[in-house]
Nucleic acid binder design. Structure first.
Length: 464
RNA sequence: GGGCCCGUGGGGUAGCUUGGUAUCCUUGUAGCUUGGGGUGCUAUUGACUCCGGUUCAAAUCCGGACGGGCCCA
């Protein structure tokens, strides 16, 4: 399957062959995380935990079910979600008085509790997060990790005294994003969504997008500033030093398993997955190359090599299966193992071990005695070059098109005056979505692609 | 909301028009062989979505249900 020719088919094929998920589970859009895929997701989650813990967030876990009465407190929010939530209407044989929703996101589960938790300015800022599954009734075509009905994600929710404090939180979220994206070797862009596309109930939304090889964008996460839009209806307020009751300013931040979908889409190739070393369940696979007369010697040496690499902290797989080496190479390429070490009689005689990099296919040797330090250098180099290559690819998929004449497989930087009428007209006429305006201001000289008035930059694309 | 298409071993498929023993590839299992890029050989497990109708006989024809996919608004 060729990545360039049919991205969708290629993607499904790559996920299937690598054994990341099993889509045969008998509910559409609800796939089984199989062991290899879940290992990757757990590694991603670990980075998220580490970053959020380090920035003063506390991990919590809220119930999955939300009473309809709480769910409906914020009008825009319910309007945005009611066509895509699952309802629990019965318990045992009884119909429920108050129906329950399976959380599509947890604002309405958390905020009644926040109202109890926050009392004084000394309780602020309140910063919590959870890593859970969430449910949305997708009606479009579902696709592993990219569009599913049960979504694995993290969501952080914060409460602050002032709008400025909340704004600073958003800056912190962006810094966290940058560190996580670097580990996943993912380029991204930050775009302030249009008013008609922001999160239901938000003051504004910053979308985190990455561009797939077919030129379509995939939203991998978002950061929202709520102002007091939720704290007022939910009664989350604090008593200031002056004794007044003041509603808190809130933000949220979330990213999902789409991170994994993006990694696959951006990095994998026609031979299978290419995993960034930081999230590879196995960073190194050691393959002994036997011949009839040296099986014992090579086997021992390979075991020792794998042992020394494990002891040095790498995630290592020793593949001593009784099959031909070529077949092993093939298997681990599909699974995206970043670094392959081959150890045979020739290597042993020379005191070296042969390596092959998954990202660029290059081969060479490193010293057997100091294999851990050699492997460290190689893995670092793989991470760096994967990120660099992905950034260059993403940049090449963004085209300047001030008037809106956009090649099919590109994201366009257009001119937009900012008014909703022009925006919606542009989307309809060009069959594109306006992703938003740059979160970090960009220099732009041009006119609105619709009305011709002075304009700022906006980005438009087809989405996955 | 409107329209179209498709359900065959674990995965991918042929067969359906013209009703009669279900094809091939892959995977799994057992054995031998092999070993620096998918070894080869042999044996073997495994399937017509469901319900009803027509018929001596249904994967095949008809109706419905369920499931899946696509397009348009």
């Amino acid at each position: 399957m060729r990545k360039e020719e049919d991205f969708n088919e290629w993607y499904i094929d790559a996920v299937e062959k690598a054994g990341l998920s099993d889509k045969r589970y008998p509910v559409k859009g609800m796939n089984v995380w199989t062991a290899y895929g879940w290992k990757i997701m757990r590694l991603i989650d670990e980075f998220i935990r580490r970053e959020l813990d380090a920035t003063g967030h506390d991990e919590v876990c809220f119930p999955l079910l939300i009473p309809e009465t709480e769910f409906k407190k914020e009008k825009d929010h319910i309007k945005g979600f009611d066509s895509e939530v699952y309802w629990v209407t019965h318990a045992g044989l009884n119909e429920l008085d108050v129906r329950l929703v399976l959380r599509p996101t947890s604002e309405t589960a958390m905020y009644p509790m926040f109202a109890l938790w926050v009392r004084s300015h000394q309780d602020l800022p309140l910063k919590v997060y959870q890593i859970v599954n969430t449910f949305r009734y997708e009606t479009k075509q579902t696709r592993a990790f990219m569009r599913v009905r049960e979504i694995h994600f993290f969501e952080s929710h914060t409460c602050h005294e002032t709008e400025e404090d909340a704004q600073r939180q958003i800056e912190e979220d962006v810094e966290i994003l940058d560190r996580i994206a670097a580990r996943l070797c993912l380029p991204y862009s930050l775009l302030k969504r249009t008013d008609w596309d922001k999160f239901p109930g938000a003051h504004y939304t910053v979308g985190i997008d990455t561009v797939m090889p077919n030129g379509r964008t995939l939203q991998i996460g978002s950061v929202h500033h709520y102002r007091t839009n939720f704290s007022v209806p939910y009664g989350i307020s604090y008593e200031s030093e002056g004794g007044e009751h003041v509603p808190v300013h809130q933000t949220t931040y979330g990213m999902s398993e789409r991170l994994l979908g993006a990694v696959i889409g951006v990095h994998a190739d026609d031979a299978g997955l290419v995993l960034p070393p930081d999230i590879a369940p196995f960073q190194i696979v050691v393959i002994p190359i036997f011949s009839k007369d040296n099986a014992a010697r090579v086997g021992e040496a390979a075991k020792a090599l794998a042992g020394s690499l494990s002891a040095a902290g790498f995630r290592v797989k020793l593949d001593d299966r009784d099959v031909r080496p070529g077949s092993k190479f093939f298997d681990w390429e599909i699974k995206g193992v970043p670094l392959r070490l081959e150890l045979g009689g020739r290597d042993l005689d020379g005191g070296v071990v042969t390596f092959a990099r998954r990202d660029d296919g290059s081969k060479g040797t490193i010293g057997l005695a100091d294999a851990p330090s050699g492997a460290r250098l190689l893995l670092d180099s793989i991470s760096a070059s994967m990120l660099e290559k992905a950034k260059a690819a993403q940049a090449s998929r963004i085209a300047d098109a001030p008037g809106g004449e956009v090649p099919d497989d590109r994201v366009a930087r257009i001119g937009w005056c900012g008014c909703e009428e022009c925006g919606r007209r542009f989307e309809e006429e060009r069959d594109l979505k306006i992703l938003g305006t740059p979160f970090r201001p960009e220099r732009f000289e041009g006119a609105c692609a619709v009305c011709g008035k002075p304009a700022n930059a906006a980005y438009a694309a087809r989405t996955m």
